[in-house]
Design a binder for these strands. Sequence first.
DNA 1: GTTGAAATAGACCACTA
DNA 2: TAGTGGTCTATTTCAAC
Lengths: 150, 150
Amino acid sequence: MDDLDRHIINELRLNGRATYAELGRTVGLSASAVHERVGKLESGGVITGYHATVDPSSIGLGVTALVGIQPSDNAEDNEVAIKLGELVEVESCWAVAGDEAFVVKVRVPTVDELERTLGRLRRIDGVARTRTTVVLSTRFEGRPNTETGE
Amino acid sequence: MDDLDRHIINELRLNGRATYAELGRTVGLSASAVHERVGKLESGGVITGYHATVDPSSIGLGVTALVGIQPSDNAEDNEVAIKLGELVEVESCWAVAGDEAFVVKVRVPTVDELERTLGRLRRIDGVARTRTTVVLSTRFEGRPNTETGE
DNA sequence: GTTGAAATAGACCACTA
DNA sequence: TAGTGGTCTATTTCAAC
């Protein structure tokens, strides 16, 4: 992993559909060389995927919330995490230090559906309580970090 | 926006580098038709971008934290949000309901750097206190929601 | 890593249901 | 108003160097 790799990664974080030819022009390599490097980054687990980002409200997911998951005494974290992942409303899941075992980000169409989702979360075995922070607006999200390349 | 659009969107959320021909095969349209639909979804602000996802620790960002930002009495939220966005360590920023004005996700190389970042956050005008939740592991993040398509 | 050639995909067109 | 199929150009991909 050298500066060229970091440069390529950063370009792909900004534009995941950049062609190898484009990448080659911006980093100063041939398309073939970029192709080979990207393949190694993918198979090496550095690049884990490519995803279109979508305006959530455009697909009917206008309500976002951050929910802290407080575990019950007998909770088995890995099982709880699996259960959390089974709910499609749960978009992200972080295991955290502190009173709570996890913080999850949920996205739902309405506050009614949020209420139902919180009920589902609380019914998971190993979940004692939830603490919900409603997101009023997403100022930015998943912003590419620019310190790793030009 | 019909079911075909939703299907295309979902495919692109799963694989942002899918070709128009591939998309056409999965949704049952010609590549041209998919091309046109995707163009409209992009210009209509439904698809907001394409991004490679990268294993953070592979690019030297092994420490993640969620930080609640408590505003001072005279705080102007929009200005605070702009300042938050100027820190490259801040990857996501949500304005939230409750005591805190924002929750941000920060990613840094080390806990030392986390400490410095928290100092930078606290020095922002309009920030009274921060509350930090250290992420022990990311179980999943930005997982495509599957309820909008097959 | 590079170049060059064949296969593939993208972009744009006129035509059509 | 979309969608189709054809055409041309650019890109991907694989070979040899």
